[in-house]
Nucleic acid binder design. Sequence first.
DNA 1: CTAATGACATTTG
DNA 2: ACAAATGCCATTA
Length: 106
Amino acid sequence: MKNHNSKNFYEKCYNVLKKVPKGKVTTYREIARALHSKAYRAVGSAMHCNPYSPKVPCHRVINSSGKVGEFASGTKMKIAMLVKEGVEIDKKTQTVNLKKFLYRLT
DNA sequence: CTAATGACATTTG
DNA sequence: ACAAATGCCATTA
């Protein structure tokens, strides 16, 4: 059941995610916070559905700790796309330097 | 409506 | 610092 504040939560996620520029990344937590929510989980689910492939850069969403996390097409693919956009990722730890590449939504 | 689930986050050992 | 356990929220069955 949906409470009054959650109409189209997924759409909101995509909406804020679209603002993230190429060469930058954001986190599930940042998106949730931009929506004034703590539904990091739900944000992840939204990315997993991923209905708008090119419009919404789902591959630019990573863990708050800097780890790239999961991806529908595989983590390696996710990393490859990010690297191609200019994001530096440690292949060993699969970690991004948030200090340099995190795009703040708020 | 209840129960289960996941591309997470935070706390504990 | 790393791994496991616990907590979180919206969505789906």
